[in-house]
Design a protein around this nucleic acid. Structure first.
Lengths: 153, 153
DNA sequence: GGTTATTGAGACTCCTTTGTCTTAAAATAA
DNA sequence: TTATTTTAAGACAAAGGAGTCTCAATAACC
């Protein structure tokens, strides 16, 4: 598995937030319902994103969480790093500690190329880009239904 | 983590086997010692590769395991599929079941490209290719020491 | 002030992966 | 046939990720 489940949930939730009016606080309960993710689990994940400064939260009625920056300025990489760390982008494919240009394993060069492709993708794809695509083509963030169901009330 | 630990161990062991004379049975104990992998754990992993027909085994004195085909005909993909399955190459990056061209998530297209890069790399890299590189440059398959230490007796 | 809606924090359970151990089965050699 | 060397199989334990639950803290509204 490339990304942990926590990370995937974090990405889906971030996309959901980016699809809403910026500045609006969205209750986690709303997101967990719409995205079909366990409320308590999602809460823990979003706490990490809040701690990293990607989200900000507000307690009490009309509270919730929101992005600290416009989704167009948030690459997927930010969320991946906040939740899964840099492991994916630094670790040796053969699991050898300290594998690098200085002291590589036989797979190092080839893997470094592939890894760069992953890095590029995560760095150059923003939340807004995906949200726009999702809205335009009514793509899905949930098991069933399209983007539109996220806006039913 | 891209590949499971079992898969990484399976790759290292397969590279070790490909570095030896073809046809020679190598005891798993020898490999677990040289590669610094738990003997019992490695045994279980190699049993999977044997079950998949990538290795064949022989019990008793002078027994061990060996590749069923020359290492030049074994792409890394074979080992990855045998141990981790096709998950990595088929699964949606956002974890949505049934994500595909028909019913994609917003990340689908971008992820499909990246995934193809991984697939290409695994399909087009053979054990022998890495072994040759490892021998030529004395690269490592273990935490310390180069390729040569695998041949000390 | 009291009630309600919300996030924060931490204990706890459950499941999968990782790793260990024991015993059986097979092959060899004495 | 007996002892030895090896893989095979499966039970078991340890660790980490995934998920649940409870209670505290904060803010709004009545």
């Amino acid at each position: 598995m490339l990304l942990s489940k926590s990370c995937v949930y974090g990405l889906r939730a971030s996309l959901f937030l980016a699809s809403r009016e910026q500045g609006e606080f969205i209750p986690i309960r709303t997101m967990s319902d719409k995205l079909e993710i366990s409320f308590h689990f999602l809460t823990k994940i979003l706490q990490q994103l809040t701690a990293e400064g990607i989200l900000e939260s507000f307690k009490g009625p009309n509270g919730g969480v929101r992005l600290t920056k416009p989704g167009s300025e948030v690459p997927l990489m930010d969320i991946v790093l906040a939740i899964d760390g840099s492991q994916l982008l630094t670790e040796c494919a053969l699991g050898l500690p300290g594998c690098g240009i200085k002291n590589p394993c036989p797979l190092h060069d080839k893997w470094a190329e592939t890894r760069d492709a992953i890095r590029e993708m995560l760095e150059h794809t923003t939340l807004t880009e995906l949200v726009d695509k999702g809205k335009a083509e009514n793509l899905r963030l949930t098991t069933e239904g399209g983007f539109d169901i996220l806006f039913d009330d």
